[in-house]
Design a protein around this nucleic acid. Structure first.
Length: 471
RNA sequence: GCUCCCUUCGUCUAGUGGCCCAGGACGCUGGCCUCUCACGCCGGAAACAGGGGUUCGAGUCCCCUAGGGAGCGCCA
């Protein structure tokens, strides 16, 4: 039988990191088994579903290249079908109309709680023969078996058994006739012939109810795999407090999709000691049976480490384009300096995300407005004037502006003055970039270009001379 | 409250009764490299939640306790 998995987010909030990992696992499982991956939008909650959230889900999936073979399907387009199944269940006696009001239910719940019982429906309307009054509003409840048990053979959690008497008669259709979650998932998973349901373990408790509905429909339920939750870096439940709401925010913060996917796949899943996985490796090695049972906390540092790994290893052309985009986003006029690829080659090992790389590359595109105070105090001192002047002369004589020629100018000056390279490299660095940290000095000068290098040198010398007269 | 689930270094994890006085990775940390930062390389500290069993032998099996989480919605 062909494997068919699905990712079924509800567009009531943004696509967050936990949802993405669930999607990733479902996608990997389908790809691993040459199966079909389906995207289904569970938008039956008309009140809270938004188009913006739908767009964010689609954009997020696209950004991560989690491609789906079928869908996106929208549950709101399938109301007729759900109604049909509710009718079927009603006719077969597996469901019944319940006329209890919300107030009745509320009272029922609080009374049960007070008794120390589970706040479940008491079955008042279970065996009603006729409505309390003609045209009285009602919901439809599923008639859950009241004895026996349901065992889930969960691929991750193992065997989990529930007693039917612990389960109550859940509502499958609201008073306005619209279907509820537990009914729609079952109908969709049935109609879409889903073979493996991979979802968050917050759904584990719903599973026995869904299995009972499948049974009532005389359909074999899919195989279930409930993946544990993802926690914030503090080990607490993921929330907006942790900063990142939508996955797209990771993109906007300079994270590469391959880094995020690699990071996520190792959250709860492992293959021995391997840490780095290409898409192909993930697909070939992934197995649900290797997924852990315990919740995992996010580790931002490790994500960044992977991001840097992919920055160092990835395709230069593509990454340079992304860097160019990031610079433009940061308001840098890319045309005013080295092309992004030359810059990227020099910067790729020095930063772990593109945004920071872009921001810290400003000096190649914009004039220096002021020197970093500490750097200037440490290196733009009177004794630096001589080395800087000599460099000026040497640089003026260079016709072929390359790393090597620049570097040899540096060593020539250093040797002639009997100084260590660092003694002239640091003043030069501050002169050229405004601060004491930059790529290696020869590359920095090369990227800057000969003219810009010379004018900044001149300005630094003037700065030092000027500061000499200021006490 | 009731039902269900979970528990190895700070974090992600390896480990399926002896190979483990517990391995890898991130982070932290000492050093090397070095024109700064970074990269890279070498080294270090750091964990089986607690208690009972079972067994010649337990991180690995069983029970209990504690802690954490989820569900109990006319949300999904």
């Amino acid at each position: 039988m062909k494997v068919r998995t699905r990712f079924a987010p509800s567009p009531t909030g943004y696509l967050h990191i936990g949802g993405v990992r669930t999607a990733l696992f479902s996608w990997l499982y389908a790809r691993r088994h040459s199966g079909v991956f389906i995207l289904r939008i569970e938008d039956t909650d008309r009140e809270r579903s938004t188009q913006a959230a739908v767009d964010a889900i689609l954009e997020g999936m696209h950004w991560l290249n989690l491609d789906y073979d079928e869908g996106p399907w929208f549950q709101t387009h399938r109301f007729d079908r759900y109604k049909e199944v509710v009718g079927q269940l009603l006719d077969a006696g597996h469901a019944y109309r319940c006329y209890c009001s919300k107030d009745d239910l509320e009272r029922m719940r609080s009374e049960a709680m007070a008794r120390g019982d589970k706040p479940k429906y008491d079955g008042t309307c279970r065996n009603l023969v006729s409505p309390p009054s003609a045209g009285a509003p009602y919901v439809v409840r599923f008639r859950n078996p009241d004895s026996g048990e349901v065992t889930i053979e969960d691929q991750i959690q193992g065997l989990v058994t529930y007693q039917n008497k612990e389960l109550d008669d859940l509502i499958i259709a609201r008073a306005d006739g619209t279907p509820t979650y537990n009914l729609t998932v079952v109908v969709d998973d049935m109609d879409m012939a889903i073979t493996h349901v991979i979802r968050g373990d917050d759904h584990l408790n719903n599973t026995p109810r869904q299995i009972n509905i499948f049974n009532a429909l005389k359909i074999t339920p899919p195989i279930y795999a409930h993946v544990p939750m993802i926690l914030g870096p503090d080990g607490k439940k993921l929330s907006k407090r942790h900063g990142t709401v939508s996955v797209l925010q990771y993109r906007d913060e300079g994270i590469l999709p391959e880094a995020l996917l690699n990071y996520l796949v190792r959250l709860g899943w492992s293959h021995g000691d391997q840490e780095v996985f290409s898409r192909e490796e993930m697909i070939n090695l992934f197995d649900i049976k290797d997924v852990n049972k315990a919740a995992a906390a996010l580790n931002p540092d490790k994500l960044l480490w992977l991001n840097q790994h992919y920055l160092k290893q990835g395709d230069t052309g593509r990454l340079a384009d992304l860097l160019g985009d990031a610079m433009r986003e940061q308001g840098i006029t890319v045309e005013l300096g080295p092309n992004p690829e030359d810059l990227f080659l020099v910067q790729r090992e020095r930063f772990n995300n593109l945004i920071e790389m872009a921001n810290k590359s400003r000096c190649f595109y914009e004039e220096i407005t002021n020197y970093d105070q500490t750097s200037a105090e440490n290196f733009l001192k009177p004794e630096a004037i001589e080395p800087l002047r000599r460099l000026q002369q040497e640089f003026e004589g260079i016709a072929d502006w390359r790393d090597e020629t620049i570097h040899s100018a540096l060593t020539t000056v250093a040797e002639s003055l009997g100084l260590k390279l660092g003694k002239i490299a640091q003043p030069l660095r501050v002169a050229l970039t405004g601060a004491a940290v930059s790529p290696s000095i020869d590359k920095t000068a090369r990227l800057l270009g000969r003219e810009r290098t010379l004018s900044r040198l001149k300005r630094a010398i003037e700065f030092i001379e000027g500061s000499r007269i200021i006490p």
